[in-house]
């Protein structure tokens, strides 16, 4: 098939996936602790195909991966003492159904047994790997370093971790991140503070998303034009140039 059409079609496909990313970002514009995704374009090179002159193989634009933008979301006061927001780099650690999960969404609750949990009921870990257990109904006091006290009694410090390379984090839905590779080790979060009575808003900026949306649509349109023009050229080539026995 025609090389231009194939390349343009690959570009169209990539823009469609980019639109999926923008759509998900905008749908989560009010999801607490959400971090937006961006696309990462790269060239698909067919290594086995050396090309006609031996120098270049088939090159197609594809979206090979997305990267998550971990910039800080704005903090919104809620007045709920169990809403904890992080400012800076780091994650809360919770005990998921199959291993630890990491989250920036700190809208916590107390379970009926008194453990601090997420809204899905996953217990929140302390720095020494236990779960944070309250002893009475007295209000909790959370310091900026994550230490929790209740009635003057120290309940432990919330685990705040970070990663050398955050690209190992996979989104698993419900505002959690997971790590699939068991070899990845967390490091203690150095530069993070906990604010009690606040939640971190989503870091999706609607204005910037709108610009990306317009950009995507125009690129899509150009690629579509490119395919149309190639089709026209091919048609011309077939109908006019290759006319056999024409009377001219």
């Amino acid at each position: 098939m025609d090389q231009i059409a194939v390349t343009a079609a690959s570009g169209l496909h990539a823009r469609m996936e980019a639109l999926d990313l923008v759509a998900n970002n905008l749908a989560n514009a009010t999801t607490g602790g959400f971090k937006l995704d961006r696309e990462f374009y790269s060239l698909f090179t067919a290594g086995e195909d050396p090309g006609v002159d031996g120098s270049s193989g088939t090159k197609l634009p594809v979206i090979q991966k997305q990267w998550t933008d971990f910039t800080q979301g704005s903090l919104q006061p809620t007045g709920n003492p169990l809403d904890l927001a992080l400012s800076g780099k780091g994650f809360f650690v919770v005990n998921g159904p199959s291993g630890p999960l990491y989250t920036r969404s700190g809208s916590f609750q107390l379970s009926s047994s008194g453990a601090l949990t997420t809204s899905d009921g996953y217990p929140v870990q302390t720095a020494d790997g236990k779960i944070l257990q309250t002893n009475s109904q007295a209000p909790l006091d959370v310091a900026a370093d994550g230490s929790v006290t209740q009635d003057g009694e120290d309940l432990g410090q919330l685990a705040l971790v970070d990663f050398q390379d955050r690209s190992v984090l996979q989104k698993v839905g419900n505002s959690y991140f997971g790590v699939t590779d068991a070899k990845v080790k967390t490091i203690p979060a150095a530069d993070v503070t906990v604010s009690q009575g606040k939640v971190e808003n989503s870091n999706v900026a609607p204005a910037e998303s709108a610009v990306r949306l317009v950009g995507l649509m125009r690129q899509f349109e150009m690629l579509q034009k490119a395919i149309s023009i190639t089709t026209d050229m091919n048609k011309k080539a077939l109908e006019d140039v290759a006319r056999v026995g024409g009377s001219a």
Binding site: N24, K65, N80, S119, V168
Partner: peptide
């Protein structure tokens, strides 16, 4: 190998509406 994959999210849902007891 591909160091990080391509994950496409599928939107949002309302999780809860908690009562604010201030």
């Amino acid at each position: 190998v591909v160091p990080t994959g391509l994950q496409l999210g599928l939107g949002t849902r309302a999780a809860s509406d908690e009562i604010v007891f201030t």
